[in-house]
Design a protein around this nucleic acid. Structure first.
Lengths: 235, 235
DNA sequence: GTGCTTATGCCAACACAGTTGACCTTACAT
DNA sequence: ATGTAAGGTCAACTGTGTTGGCATAAGCAC
């Protein structure tokens, strides 16, 4: 058995599967993203992924230590895509805003995958590259190291946290069509005004607001916080 | 079979289990919290919970529609505990800060349970009570309804999102003792300064920072944002 | 107390999950 | 041309959520 997974870089013998396809980490991860979109965040199983690849489920263990390891690789792929879609301009505020939105967008582009992976640190290369980039922006802007590290921490956590939460409702909406929006209408709108006056008074606004993400607003708060820090250390 | 779950309030016949215990939603949820702490966020299984209760696993389906429904009940329990530990003072800023911290603390008190439930909206009574409370604070402070709804949204999402993320690393630390902190040291600290200059320069700060939550800082940013909104609408 | 009804607990079984050990086969190094 | 072992396959293990059928005792009417 797969006592030891051969690292992708060291692979030499690429054997064809029974159905003719040639495997690689990249192909497996990409196929996993397809399976996730089609079958939901809990629908990625070894057997199903094997079938989608035209390979035996156990073959996966030649590439990943387990389904958990595969999930981390999927998360790293999303991080990589975010970084790829981003370009530096030199303006810290614009760069940080764009990077945050790129991460958020990259995860939301695959909500089911995001639910599966956004709440765990992978420690894989692409994620590390993102960390390096963020720290570079903050230190380049002139923040002292301790402050930069604090902001970096809040930034990455906030981005991932909102990505996970927003992806959750998005994935739910994909899977059980508008059942949660319906819950908003049915559960919240029907609450008696005596016991829940504030919800009753704002029910129409709540229904309109909840489908949108609060991430952009939270991100702007963070950027503003950084600007204040910079103006303080500048003077 | 559990074609239909009898709502807790309508229960009359409380039959003793083979081992003598008398079940209820509350007892099941409390036992589930114990099982989660002992066996980790993925360790809550129908059989294990049944064993902990001294009951057959299938009995659970008389109380909950499925393990997913049980998870939502657990989340609602954490919400309820947060609200119980909180008292209003009339000062919107102090109240909102205290409520945010109470939610965060309540989830972090049961990290494994938080990982399981913090990323989903339950729509259950205690969660709704929290929503009502938040909206009451914001509207009571004088925010116009549309702004109040927007801030409410950001507040609850941010609190839950950070709770989930922080609980994740806390649960990980509980389960695989300091293996992730070790990863911080081993993975990040050893990166070559040429390829990752910013991580290398701040490695000592990173190791010190990561175990702490970024939630308090994010919460203060949100409160400051609300204060600005209030001063604007006030003038 | 005597039944009656039925909620609620238990048992056995189902399909499907992740994972592994043993085996086979073919790509590459020599 | 040959040997080695990477990498694919097969079968089987344990554990999962979930359900249909059955038994029993709790509460009600009298």
């Amino acid at each position: 058995m797969a006592k030891q997974v051969v690292p992708e870089a060291a692979r030499q013998r690429r054997r064809r599967t029974r159905s003719g396809t040639v495997l690689s980490e990249e192909i497996i991860v990409r196929t996993a993203l397809r399976v996730l979109r089609a079958h939901g965040s809990t629908g990625l199983t070894a057997r199903r992924l094997g079938a989608a690849l035209g390979a035996d489920p156990s073959t996966l263990y030649r590439y990943f230590a387990g389904m958990d390891d595969l999930a981390r690789a999927i998360g790293d792929e999303l991080m990589g895509r975010a970084l790829d879609s981003w370009t530096a301009t030199g303006d810290w505020r614009a760069d940080l805003r764009a990077l945050g939105r790129a991460i958020h967008a990259s995860y939301l582009a695959h909500p089911q995958a995001a639910v599966l992976t956004a709440s765990r640190v992978t420690g894989r290369p692409r994620e590390i590259a993102v960390d390096e980039t963020i720290l570079g922006i903050l230190r380049g802007a002139g923040l002292p190291d301790p402050v930069a590290v604090g902001v970096y921490h809040a930034f990455i956590d906030q981005s991932l946290a909102f990505a996970a939460l927003d992806a959750g409702s998005l994935a739910l909406a994909d899977e059980a069509r508008t059942r949660d929006e319906g819950m908003w209408q049915s559960t919240y709108a029907r609450l008696p005004a005596e016991s829940h006056p504030n919800i009753a008074a704002t029910a129409h606004l709540l229904a309109r607001r909840m489908p949108h993400s609060a991430y952009p607003a939270a991100l702007e708060m963070l950027l503003e916080h950084v600007a204040v820090q910079l103006s303080r250390s500048g003077t």
